[in-house]
Design a protein around this nucleic acid. Structure first.
Lengths: 208, 208, 208, 208
DNA sequence: TATGAATGAGAATTCATTCAT
DNA sequence: GATGAATGAATTCTCATTCAT
């Protein structure tokens, strides 16, 4: 399928991938211009269509590429030995920060794909991203040690409250996560500090 | 600026506004077709560009129109006499439900605008919507009676936790708010019931 | 369907029709360039697609237009009162000559369409041209007075021989009919004279 | 000119020739794809253009190759000892049948070339095919024994009538010659039988 | 010889915008 | 005010041809 493209030297391959991710991330599938992609990648119009049958096929390749990256570079790195929900969440935040420091366009790509999703590619991508995120969320936020919870607390619901609260917090702090993760280290440290304060408050609610 | 359009007889004006909202809501700024708008509104292409300098100017008009509607039909109707945060939130949910029952396209319009925002209009709309929502949120979630809060609780933070948790809940229940509000009354009642359960849990956390 | 185009002022409409016929006649459906058509017609690219949904639709319009022309300007004009096959054939030749003097491109168009027919339009045009020609041929070469035929001659077969012979002759004289009909009047008269000689020979064969 | 190609080992050369004939026969000059040709021939794009300057040059080579084949395999095999025109014609029909059984693509190639001829190659191929066919026809249909013709018959013209009639017949029977020759033996025998009937009728006309 | 990646002009089609009526 | 014909730049995609290896 993409054999021609995949056997390209990594350097050039990545230039093209990044140009495509950038354009799709900025404009969504439909408004993205293959013209812009080739201009950004510094290749000819024909070459893009030598590697990819058409725009859609290029998009789906990029989509799968990004999904795999997300899986390998994020979900695979979470340590599930950490049984305390707050510690686990801190770990996740740090991993996310690293991830999006490394691949800043990828996050925008998913945001654009999920929100601006065009009917032309909807059917194909189905809900693979959604599935990954949901199955991921389940994984990320399960298997906690609940021995130190107050009696009479619905554990599941309390975990939800913790997650939603902290999500709400970082959304507020970062407006969009994209912005959040484009901040520098010291700003990020401030955010972490604020997260810690909220964690303490939530611990008071649910921990003995 | 829009004097020509504004001095139009209200009936015709509304037909055009609704046609535009519908198209922008469905497709976002860039993909919206002025052709579709004039077809839906039953006017000629020339006339649309007689009233509005260009597509962008039409969009910005619609955007401001929708913002004002949101303000009048929602924020202005919240009763600030209700001093209990949970009661206030319940009231807001009901108002929202009414609002989106009445103007179903408007919500879609904002969702589309915020998510699919095209770089071409981003700068102009700035963050007027965001500002309204934020200033609105402040308004909506201030001035509570905190006399029955546990001692030693950071009130502001606890209010945030309540809001974010309930937001998280209805996002989860409705997946997208759009879907949520297009549900029928009995489904909406179920959602309210679930909200109540979470409210009880949150009360345990923060109320004496 | 083609209402926009049909309500155009005849002069301009014909310019476009002729430009399209010319291009399709020269290159066949697939190789014909809409770019060339608009250049030849002196209109903008957009206007062509304002009148016709796409290249295919333009082609089918032209095809039907040409079919109707062929029917009105040729088949409808043949006088079936002429019961002598040779006189009938002479009449037909003269009508054809007039027809193709008047619409020189049309003949080329059909030749190109029949021979170069692209799979992309084949299904749509079906065999409407073929049907017309065949039903036409039947009409053209039936209902003769056979009272002066020699006895023991298979009339049907003899008529076929007459037709095929005369067709063969004018094909030879004109190489392609296209060329034939682009000749001038005096050349055409020579051809007619030659046809007459062959007719005499054929009469000897079949007439008493 | 084509020295490089001609000094190729015959096996490989024929693979390329056949691939090219097939593609040109199916699609005509313009629509034929050099991509398809190299794919079918199992060679690289570069190699094709190493042997042939460009697509046009390849086409002209194939064209001349096919012309020569037609000459050697058909015209050279006709026995001119047969002095009876009807026997000669029968012989020719059988030879044609053998020829196109052996080289089915070649016939399609000429049909496609003659009918779909693109202006880009028209000038170059000129009318070499036409010339061959015409000079061939002269050869094929000359030198007959006319001793048993009726007196007062223009022999040349009567021969023409015979040829055109029989051509007309097989065109009608086979619709296109291509179809005709792709029929199986028993169908071909039926056609021959019909030809014989017409021959008898024509004999009555011209033979004593 | 032999490869196939790379090119870029040209194809059909869309669409916001203008302008004569 | 009102129309919709007319424009042309921009879109995705194709394909003969070249050239470094």
């Amino acid at each position: 399928m993409f054999s021609k493209f995949l056997s390209l030297e990594p350097k050039k391959r990545d230039i093209i991938i990044n140009a495509a991710i950038k354009e799709f991330a900025q404009k969504g599938y439909k408004d993205a211009s293959t013209n812009e992609i080739v201009k950004e990648a510094g290749i000819s119009k024909g070459l893009l269509f030598h590697y990819f049958k058409n725009k859609k096929s290029l998009f789906l390749f990029i989509y799968d590429y990004a999904l795999e990256l997300l899986n390998n570079e994020f979900y695979a790195k979470v340590s599930f030995d950490e049984k305390d929900i707050f510690q686990r969440y801190r770990q996740i935040l740090l991993l996310e920060y690293e991830l999006f420091k490394k691949y800043p366009q990828m996050y925008s790509f998913f945001v654009a794909t999920v929100s601006k999703d065009s009917s032309e590619v909807n059917d194909e991508i189905g809900n693979r991203y959604q599935e990954l995120v949901e199955s991921g969320s389940k994984l990320l936020f399960e298997g906690f040690d609940v021995s130190n919870y107050k009696d009479g607390i619905d554990v599941k619901k309390s975990i939800n409250i913790i997650i939603w609260s902290l999500e709400g917090l970082i959304n507020k702090l970062g407006y969009h996560r994209t912005t959040l993760f484009s901040t520098n280290q010291s700003q990020f440290d401030e955010i972490l500090a604020e997260v810690d304060v909220y964690m303490e408050l939530l611990k008071k609610c649910f921990y003995k």
